[in-house]
């Protein structure tokens, strides 16, 4: 049974409907990728799942309980961590404060978890008291991951984590994502860099104009000529 089961969701902004009956399943322990052209509704779908945007129709289940239109607070309490595409750290707060906030929300022991998370992301350790706004793009992304992971989520939802990063930083971001997943955290990720993500994803969904187009294993999608033509770019 799926850890996250999104069934026939319709949603949009105001009167405009963006998602038309979109469904996805994420099995426990998997890394599931959503790819598709710009403006196809990928971010919108994530916002609906995490409770930032209302679902007009459909149902979302997490661990077999309905979480459709739950508050973002409830979603966080259930163990879902969301890293938005942009502005995903508190720029006016220190790195330490950024990492502490989830522990204040969920009331877990910050000190203990901080040590563990800093072992995973040692680069943050030397800058604990600097403002997050002064970090480089890659460091910010690392902080955003650390902030999402510190609460030991059972599902991590990432929106285009490689966007705006240099190719080297992007590669190390994908490595981080893969190792987070290997450590047992289920991941749902939206990614522009389809080739990279499909090569490590268990499953992938292609979304276009707010509709499900194709879904298959990551490797099958990589070799699927339709997907190649449409979304993986012509060359290579």
């Amino acid at each position: 049974m799926a850890l996250l089961d999104v069934q026939n969701i319709n949603a949009g902004y105001g009167e405009t409907e963006i998602l038309h009956s979109v469904s996805i399943q994420v099995n426990e322990g998997n890394l599931v990728a959503i790819i598709g052209p710009n403006g196809s509704g990928k971010s919108t779908l994530l916002k609906v799942i995490v409770g930032l945007l209302e679902a007009k129709k459909g149902n979302i289940e997490f661990m077999a309980d309905s979480i459709t239109n739950s508050s973002p607070q409830k979603i966080v309490e259930l163990g879902i961590s969301y890293v938005p595409q942009a502005e995903n750290v508190f720029t006016n707060m220190t790195i330490k404060e950024n990492l502490e906030i989830p522990s204040l929300v969920l009331k877990f022991n910050f000190k203990k978890r901080l040590e563990e998370i800093l072992e995973l992301f040692p680069i943050l350790d030397t800058k604990m008291n600097t403002k997050a706004g002064t970090l480089s793009g890659g460091q910010r992304q690392t902080l955003a991951f650390a902030k999402a992971l510190i609460s030991k989520p059972s599902l991590m939802i990432l929106d285009e984590p490689s966007a705006g990063l240099s190719p080297i930083m992007a590669d190390s971001t994908f490595e981080t994502i893969e190792s987070i997943n290997k450590s047992g955290v289920t991941i749902l990720i939206v990614e522009q860099n389809a080739k990279k993500i499909l090569s490590i994803a268990d499953r992938g969904y292609v979304l276009a104009t707010g509709e499900n187009k194709i879904d298959d294993t990551g490797l099958n999608l990589l070799t699927n000529p339709d997907v190649g033509m449409l979304y993986l770019g012509g060359s290579n």
Binding site: V50, G51, L52, P72, Q73, I75, V76, E77, Y82, P84, E87, N88, V89, F90, T91, N92, M93, E97, E100, I101, P102, L104, V105, L106, K147
Partner: peptide, 22 residues
């Protein structure tokens, strides 16, 4: 705690919402 939540919300209301701040 609530002072920190206030600063977080002033800094980035959407992120504070999706981080689970009431």
């Amino acid at each position: 705690k609530y002072g920190k939540f206030m600063r977080a919300t002033a800094n980035n209301p959407n992120l504070s919402l999706s981080t689970g701040i009431n």
